[in-house]
Design a binder for these strands. Structure first.
Lengths: 213, 213
DNA sequence: ACGTGAAACGGACCCAGGGTCCGTATCGTA
DNA sequence: TACGATACGGACCCTGGGTCCGTTTCACGT
């Protein structure tokens, strides 16, 4: 039993300020990201694209992948974070309806719609990340971020007693493989999926029957 | 690109009535199921238990595993169905609150609580099944069964417009890795998890604010 | 009881794919 | 331009799912 330790993953951009980073290194990093992005987008199943494929497509040796990103999960993670960055900024410091100044009853649906839309548009990537066998999606820090943001908003919704669980449950409705099943396999149109989620969220946010006067 | 065909999986109990099945075959099948069950229960991560491990624990050659169950997924599937069978019977032909005669507003929470309880009690197994990389959980027929049963019940809930999506969303709150995260990692007590889900479900089932007279 | 052929057995074997090693080529700096 | 540090890349290793085939074991008919 190998007893999973705390993920070795040493040399992933140590950010040495003493020396300028080598040009070929950054160039290769970009090439790898681009190649991987393209491959994941093109292929139906994420596990169909191997590390060797990515290396070949980027015109680079396999070791370069692992030197730059640690392991497969690290590479996928880097790709995912790259795509997610703008949305994250919009959530953390942007204007309503995503930004922090939005009233909860408006922000919760906006957040969930943003997550869903992102996963629809990047479902192959999201699938690769969530389906990456080893570590569950719930260990990833970006999930932690979404969850705590959503929970904070839900906390201010009247009548919701368990905001943490509710946040988990609502986020679960945007799981990548569910999105892939509905949008990818069953060809549900993007807008219809968003509408369904919106209706479901609205139902959850609806105040309890007796409006306190 | 290997182009996933319709799962070869030929010789999984073809049920020939012409000849009595060989004694050693059924004995080995039992041994394998028992060994696998025990190993999955004992180990934290499902991918820590290999087919060779199971074969060794059962005192059987690897080929016997694959002859009897097709592939890894098939074995896990057989285990899962075995455990699930009593609940399935209770749902299909049992008494309330799980059986078909139950009024929807009572049956929906009962169904979801049954699923959740089952996944808590068999989370390693459920994790193995849902996390089995290749095919998404949504392709499995037992998911299809849960979904259609739940959808049928939800259809009769007033004000719910999209029963199919709602069924998906509610079932998503019982995903094995979420259960593992909350109960396994964060040590949430079983009863508390059930209470949280029950509260969430109740919130969804709550009728829209204006009660029709 | 015993011969017989079909079915099951098992472990050596194959192969894909993630991850590593180390001699070599390249870059930034003096 | 020389030099040390850094990155390169492809041969290599290893684990783990899945298969092959010679051998064994069973169920059935006599």
């Amino acid at each position: 039993m190998p007893e999973r330790s705390e993920r070795p993953e040493g040399p992933v951009q140590p950010e040495r300020p003493g020396r300028k980073p080598r040009a070929d290194a950054t160039r290769n990093r970009e090439a790898v990201l681009a190649a991987a992005d393209s491959l994941f987008a093109r292929c139906e199943s994420p596990e169909a694209v191997t590390m060797a494929d990515i290396a070949a497509a980027a015109g680079v040796g396999k070791a370069t992948l692992f030197r730059g990103f640690g392991d497969r999960t690290g590479l996928i993670h880097a790709l995912y974070e790259m795509r997610l960055a703008p949305i994250r900024r919009a959530v953390e410091e942007g204007a309503p309806p995503l930004g922090p100044a939005t009233p909860p009853l408006q922000r919760v649906p906006a957040l969930l719609d943003a997550v869903l839309s992102f996963k629809i548009d990047n479902r192959h990537l999201a699938l690769a990340l969530e389906g990456t066998g080893g570590d569950s999606p719930y260990a990833a820090e970006h999930y932690e971020r979404w969850h705590s943001t959503l929970q904070a908003a839900l906390e201010q919704v009247p009548g919701l007693t368990d905001s943490s669980f509710a946040a988990h449950a609502l986020l679960a409705a945007t799981r990548a493989d569910l999105v892939e099943h509905l949008v990818g396999q069953q060809r549900m149109p993007r807008e219809q999926m968003r509408a369904h989620l919106a209706a479901f969220v609205a139902r959850v946010l609806e105040p309890p029957c007796a409006p306190l006067d």
